[in-house]
Simulated scan of single mutants.
Amino acid sequence: MSGPVSPDARTVWQAVRAPLATVGIILAASLLLVLLRGGESGALDPRSAEEGGSRALATLLERQGVRIQRVTTAAHAGELLTGEASLLVTDPDLLRPERLRSLGAKAGRIILVGAHTEAVSAVAPGLSVSGEVGTGTRQPGCAHPDALAAGAVTLGGVSYHGSGAAELCYGEDESGPLAERERVTLLGGPAPLTNAALDEEGNAALAMRLLGQRERLVWYLPEPGDPALRAGEESVYDLAPPGVLFGLGQVAVAVVLLALWRARRLGPVVTEPLPVVVRGAETVEGTARLYRKAGAAGHAAQALRTAALRRLRPALGLAVDAEPQAVIAAVAGRSGRADAEVAALLYGPPPSGDAELVRLADALDTVESEVLHA
């Protein structure tokens, strides 16, 4: 007889190469999908056709003669800010204030979306953040020509406060989510620039007037890897492109499906031939010896009575769960014995020893014979 043999390296490789190849193909496909989609699915991206993107606005601006230059680093944006180019920063809070101040000094006009305290202080010292307002339809409430031409727009987000030459619109109490001071425009939220809301109210008119005042527009979307980003302000999940999370989700689903496909499953029961054949009589004798050795006369008597009742009930036309009184009456009527004698025989107390157990077995055999041959 041979013992169990551990699988060798060749056997292990043959077992795992198919799953490894499948996982490799899935990872490669997910990576390719991320590379193809990662740069076109961000918020306010002029190449994105999703609801949060700005492809529709970029198309309208280009038709009006505005040249849009999309950049993802502050260094590239600084190289393009020559002449009277406008600069749009979609997430100014990610940049270091000094780097944002340097870009604002080079731009002929700078538009910040959703800027908070430090970013506002870096480019527009005369303005400050007054709070947050919900996004909804708002009336201009100011004398700014762009706001008056656009009328009601869908706007919200950061609300700004200022004095002197500052122009505040779409708010109340000398504050609002649209603020302008000299060459700086602060837009509290991205709603008017998105594909989803561009055709609502006067969003398109306001967006085109704010971004189309120069022949060139440098559209700056800060992305991971830009040296100008603030250190430690954003987690890797916030900075990662949406395509990465989408790809990781696909990989997780594929791994679960692969595990379900390759997991060990229980098949049908397999019968195996026994090495020896044991006769039924030997099994009975062995069980009897165990009962005798343990002194379990009562247990043996209960087994004898249960077997006798299992054979008597069908012969008497009774159900397998018939009550003892019904069984006693039927057996007594068929055998001619008294009810008390039958009750003591079938449901009486256990015998006190082997001699009584033998007499009980003989009596049960006699009663069974009388009932079956009556």
Rank of each mutant, 00 (worst) to 15 (best):
G83Y: 06
A107D: 11
L127D: 07
S128F: 03
A124T: 09
A105M: 12
E98M: 08
R109S: 15
I111Q: 07
E98I: 03
G108S: 15
P125G: 08
H116C: 01
T117N: 05
V123R: 01
R109P: 06
L81I: 10
D91L: 07
L80W: 10
A107M: 11
L80V: 09
G126E: 15
A122V: 11
R101F: 03
R99C: 01
L103C: 10
S121A: 15
T90W: 04
E79A: 14
A124V: 13
S128Q: 15
V123M: 09
R109L: 06
E84F: 00
L95I: 12
L112W: 03
V89F: 06
T117V: 12
S128D: 15
H116A: 06
D91A: 14
G83C: 08
P125V: 07
A119F: 08
A122W: 04
P125D: 10
A105C: 05
P92Q: 12
G83V: 03
L95Y: 10
K106I: 00
S102T: 13
D93E: 15
G108K: 15
G126P: 00
S130V: 09
H116R: 13
A105V: 12
I111L: 14
I111Y: 04
R99P: 00
T117D: 11
E98V: 08
V129C: 05
L81P: 02
L88E: 07
D93I: 05
I110S: 14
V129R: 03
T82M: 04
L100N: 04
V129K: 02
L103H: 08
I111D: 00
A107I: 11
L100V: 12
G126V: 09
A107C: 13
L103G: 14
H116G: 05
L81S: 07
L95Q: 00
P92N: 12
L81W: 02
A122R: 09
L88D: 10
L112V: 10
L88T: 05
T117M: 00
I110R: 07
V113G: 00
I111P: 08
A115Q: 05
T90V: 15
G104K: 10
V123I: 08
L80E: 04
